[in-house]
């Protein structure tokens, strides 16, 4: 057992965990944040994607003890003051989901993608960069539309900020 502190969505969380505990298990079972999903549990499907120190990773394949002292953002940490994050809003407007199981991972991967490319994305790049996230409803078409829309909003917001 180890005593670890991980800052999740801005709040430090200290728990006693078994060393074999995965980060996704820490998030879902120890903290009760069930927005992060477990799909394949083999680091292929991306449903468990969260941000670890600002980068999208698959939390089913990271030990919680190895994340001790880190900053984690989950799907619950994106909205601010009751206002959805632009990517969440875009998924809502474009119906970027069918059953919704993959959606938290898709959104976390998309936020990371838009940040890395500073919103400069085209359809080909979005489809390529989402290769680590699987939607078994095959609802990719609207997901891609949603990401492109959110990327455009990101570019517009930054252009305004630059003026």
């Amino acid at each position: 057992m180890s005593r670890i502190t991980i800052t999740v969505n801005g709040a430090p969380q200290t728990r006693e965990v078994e060393d074999r505990t995965m980060l996704v298990q820490f998030i879902r079972e120890h903290l009760g944040l069930t927005g992060t999903h477990v799909g394949c549990d083999t680091s292929q499907c991306g449903a468990c994607t969260i941000h670890l120190d600002g980068e999208a990773v698959k939390s089913c394949t990271v030990l919680a003890v190895a994340a001790d002292g880190s900053q984690v953002t989950t799907i619950e940490g994106l909205a601010e003051g009751g206002k959805l994050h632009d990517v969440q809003q875009a998924f809502r407007e474009h119906h970027g989901l069918q059953c919704g199981y993959c959606t938290p991972g898709m959104i976390m991967a998309s936020v990371d993608m838009i940040r890395r490319h500073d919103g400069m994305l085209d359809e080909h790049t979005v489809r390529h960069e989402l290769e680590g996230n699987i939607c078994r409803c095959t609802g990719y078409h609207n997901i891609v539309k949603a990401v492109l829309d959110a990327a455009e909003k990101h570019r517009a917001a930054h252009a305004v900020a630059a003026e």
Binding site: L52, A109, G132
Partner: peptide
């Protein structure tokens, strides 16, 4: 290698 998330680890 792998995908974006894998390359981050």
């Amino acid at each position: 290698i792998g995908d974006v998330q894998v390359r981050h680890m």
